[in-house]
Amino acid sequence: MDVLIHLFVGLHIIGIASLLGGFLTQMKQMGQGAARFSPAMLHGALTMLVTGVVLVGLNQADDNAVNNLKIGIKMAVLIVILALVYVKRDEEKVDKGVFGAVGLLTTANIFIAVLWT
């Protein structure tokens, strides 16, 4: 079971790397007002959602303690990110505030995961 959990943790990290990487590569365009959400950002957010749900299930099945409040907050933040990226995915230019909010929420989600023990 540990190998399976570690596999999904790796996939979860790949998802967040895709989402945050898509944001970071467009920081210059955001400053110019020409940033847009790439398909990699949407797929990264979806990967995070699916692997996160699987990780909770695997950890509960393995009788590991799961902090439901932490998971609930992380999922709420991720759903907001996913909604913003999904709704604005086809727009040629995304407002600086919306694009910046996705980056800020993604970073907040990372810090919630790492610092909340």
Rank of each mutant, 00 (worst) to 15 (best):
T106H: 02
M41Y: 06
L24I: 11
I73D: 07
K74S: 08
L7G: 00
T25V: 14
A45Q: 03
K88A: 00
D90T: 13
L4C: 00
T51R: 10
W116N: 00
S18F: 11
H6G: 00
A34L: 15
Q32M: 14
L11S: 03
V102P: 11
S38D: 05
L115K: 00
Q29V: 00
I5C: 04
L58A: 04
L42H: 10
A45F: 04
G103T: 04
N109V: 06
V3D: 14
N67T: 05
H43Y: 14
T106Q: 07
N68Y: 15
G103V: 02
H6C: 01
I110F: 06
A83W: 07
V102H: 11
T106Y: 03
V94N: 02
V53Q: 06
V98C: 03
M27W: 15
G72W: 06
V3I: 14
I71H: 11
A34M: 14
V102D: 09
V66N: 06
V3T: 13
R36H: 11
A40C: 08
V87T: 02
R36N: 08
G15I: 07
L105W: 05
G72T: 13
I71S: 13
A83E: 00
A113P: 07
L69D: 13
A17R: 10
L11N: 02
K70I: 08
F8D: 01
A83G: 01
F8L: 09
N59F: 14
